[in-house]
Structures are given as C-alpha cells and as structure tokens.
Design a protein around this nucleic acid. Structure first.
Lengths: 246, 246
DNA sequence: GCTTGAGTCGGACGCGACGTCGGGGTCTGG
DNA sequence: CCAGACCCCGACGTCGCGTCCGACTCAAGC
C-alpha cells in the first residue's frame, strides 16, 4: 500500500501522513528499494485511531500518551468538552453581535449594544464632520462603557438642526451667527452636563481624550465655540472641565 | 501617549500594536527624539475600530478595505456569520460525539455512533488479543461505515466463550480441541456470512484489509483455524473469500 | 551630574497543523 | 524505452500574535 492509498482510505492527505511521521506520531513503515513507503494494514489502524482522536480536538502533541493509556481518556474528554463549549460560547456571542449590528444598521466598528438607537447620519453634513461624529461615537462608547454611554448619548440629545448649524460655521461666519450657535448649543448641553455629573464612571482621562478628539477633528471656529461653551457652563454652575458633545 | 497606555486603553498588548504597525494596519505615529512612539487620540480611535472588527472575526488582511469602505460591510457580515455558524456546527457535532462516547463508555478512538452497544472487553482475554479485537473494531467501523457495521457487529455475534476458546489456542493445543473450535466458530459464523452477503457496500478491498489484519495480529494456530473456516464455508455454499470475525 | 528602575525598541523565533512549491527520483502500462 | 502518474524531501507560508533578547530611553531620586 503506497502513501496515497493509505491517505485515501483514512480520509487524509499525503502531506498529513508525512507530517505525522515527522512529529513521530506514526512509525515509519519499511521502504521499497526506491524509497517509497510501503504501508500495511496495521498502519491504517493506527492512523484511524489518530484521526479519530484528532477530530475530537485532541492536540497532536498529547495524542501519543492518550493512544497508549486509555484510562487517561476520561479527563481528556472533560477538557475537550470544556474547550469546545467555551469556543461555541464565543462564536455564539459573535453571531449575536453580528445580528445586532445588522438589525440596527449600525456600522460594524461600533459596539453592537448600541444598534437599537444608533443615529443615522444627517443628510447634508459635511463628510469630515460625519466622520468626526462617527469617531466620537466609537471613542465614547469604548471609554464610557455601555451603561454610561446609553444614558449620555441615548437620552438627551442636541437636535440635528443645531449641530448642523454648528458644523456649518466657517472662518467667514458673522459673529452674531457664532454667538447664536453658542446660545443654541448651551440650551441643549446644559441639561446633558447635569445628567453627566451624576455618572460616577466618568473619569478624567476619558473626558480629556474626548476633548482632544475635538481639538484634532474640528475647525478653529468650532473649537472656539466649544471653549466659549465651556466658559458659559463654568459660570452658570461651578462645574468645570468637560467639553460638550458636538 | 506611549504605547503601553494606548494598549491599555484599547485593551490590547503592546506587542499587538507593533504587529498592527508591521502589517500596515495602523499608521506609524510620530516618534520622540529617542524613538518612542507618541500616540494621539486619533490613533486610539483607529485602533478601537480595528479591534472591534477583529473581534467580529474579520481577518486582519481584509480589514483595511473594510475600514475605508463601509458599504462592503454587508456582504462581509454575511460571510462572517456563515463562517461562525459553520464552526459552531462543527464544534457542536464534536461535543455530541464526546457525549456519546462517555455515555457508552466507548474508547475514544472508536466512532461514537457505536457507543450504544460497544462490547465490553472479556475478562481473561489475553491483552494482545483484546488489542486485536479493538483494532478490528476500529478498522471495520471505518471501512464498512456505520450502517453496515451495525448490521454486522451489532446483530449476530460469536459468543464470548467461543472466541475465548479461539484465542486460547496455542501451538500445543490438541488437534481435537482445534477441530472443536472450528466447529463452534462455524456454527456462529455461517449465519453472519449469510447476512453479510446481503450487504451491498462490502467491497473487496475492505474484506481484503480485514483479512490482512488477521494475518498480522493472530498467531499461527488462529490463522490456520480461520483458513479451515473459510474452506468449510466455501464448501457449504459457493460463496468465497471473506474471513469471519474472530 | 549619576544612577536606578520602569518602559520602549526592533529582530528573531515559536506555535499548530498542515498547504504549497520546487526539483528530483521511481514506478508501471504500452 | 518512454511517458505520465506517483513518490520523495526540504523549505517556506499560513494567522495572530507571545515570548525572549540585548540595546536603548526616559523620569525621578540622590
């Protein structure tokens, strides 16, 4: 029996046979004068035992000990079952995440818990501002955790027409328009900040990072508006330091 | 922000960061004068998007294209879901096999379908003969397939006290004992061979291999007995060529 | 300034179970 | 005797990092 026949009988590839020989899992059979391996039926039996155990998930490295000692099989089966069930659990969670993302139409780089209420991108928003909002969501969702994130982004919200005016500001916007946007934002941000103060998880590093994201992504006018907002918030209460959503 | 802080914020290791840089998945940040990477919050955002998609099972190699093109995500999610469910199916079958093996007390190198009726090893059987029976089971179960195997090994059986006498034969066994064993085996093997003739799947290669296993594992007396059995079977009917179970 | 200790760097190898490629030899039917 | 199928072995590739190494850098204390 040549290697390809043995492989076919056992349902493996010839390369697998060679691998098993290499790692000492199967004994080398006698060779023909030309160096071909000549297998006997005993090799098939050993190979079948190997493939069956391997198909149960036994690592090839521990397989020899199990082949010789049938009593060691019990704990082995326990362990294999545990590993398989753990893996199934992981994959099941993954599938649930995928399903949640699809149901909510959420982009896949957002946490799936947020799929239920994920805000659709506003029509007419400049693309780089849409990107900023997206990045803000990604960052906040991770830093705040699902609970804090939901209570912050899921409840009170700055309405789209206000944020649209905010993003539309440019270097040539008239001063009174800028001031008007600050007022409009303030009206919506103030209650958000109040609720935010009640959340214990909100550590300073998180707010610092969110602020830095604004610094990097927003234009100079938007940054000025946010700073004015902070001043107004600080003066209305003595609650310092956190930038509002934009 | 140094690498360890970024890694901690994203929930990965520093080594993972370096790996992502190496494969071009993350852009290299500017370096300090000493060569240290200085990250900004934007890097954290990108990293978070990467880790989330990776946790959904997206291969790192296809990840860049998905990051840039959000519309490609749909088919991707389909594919990921299919892969996950296929993997779950495999692992579930594996767990079912493990459970079947444990319920039946079947050794793990036998097919789990046989767990219900797997014969317990006979007390007093020489160990090498027990090994032979085991190997015979392994080989036959694989070559014949579950259905043919069950109808062959699961129904009619040579009773243990007969096979015990067969295995106990040695070079110094008296001739009349040998002849008596042949008679006893014949009585049980004849109906088995009759049923076996009805099975279509039984190809000649399979019976050839099973015969070769007997040749290799059994002692000279046992082999002689089997050959006498074959002759007697061939003379009783004109059905040639297959060795009986032993 | 000098040291110390924690952090960082890049390169290289390891893992697990083989797939794939390449260059060369061997067998078998016609 | 030759073509074509089969076999050999060695070596590198896969995937997502873990681990180790020797050399360097940085902030803090003395």
């Amino acid at each position: 029996m040549l290697s390809s026949e043995l492989a076919a009988l056992a349902g493996v590839t010839v390369r697998t046979l060679r691998h098993y020989h290499q790692i000492g899992l199967l004994p080398e059979p006698p060779r023909s004068s030309g160096g071909y391996r000549r297998y006997e039926v005993g090799h098939l039996v050993r190979l079948l035992r190997v493939t069956r155990l391997a198909s149960l998930g036994v690592p090839l490295s521990v397989l020899p000990s199990v082949l010789d000692d049938p009593t060691a099989a019990e704990e082995l089966l326990d362990e294999l079952d545990d590993r398989a069930s753990a893996e199934i659990e992981r994959l099941t969670r993954r599938r649930a995440d995928i399903a949640a993302l699809r149901r909510g139409g959420t982009p896949p780089d957002l946490p799936p818990e947020l799929s239920a209420w994920h805000p659709a991108p506003e029509a007419g928003t400049p693309t780089d501002m849409a990107r900023h909002e997206h990045e803000q969501l990604v960052l906040a969702a991770h830093l705040l955790g699902p609970a804090a994130f939901r209570s912050l982004f899921g409840g009170l919200t700055v309405p789209p027409h206000v944020t649209a005016r905010f993003y539309a500001l440019g270097p040539d916007s008239p001063d009174d328009e800028v001031a008007s946007v600050v007022d409009a934002l303030l009206a919506h941000v103030e209650p958000i900040m109040a609720e935010l103060a009640n959340l214990p998880q909100l550590d300073s590093r998180a707010s610092e990072l969110l602020e830095q994201l604004n610094e990097q992504n927003l234009g100079p006018v938007q940054r000025r508006v946010l700073r004015q907002l902070q001043l107004r918030l600080a003066s209305s209460e003595s609650d310092p330091g956190h930038s509002g959503r934009a």
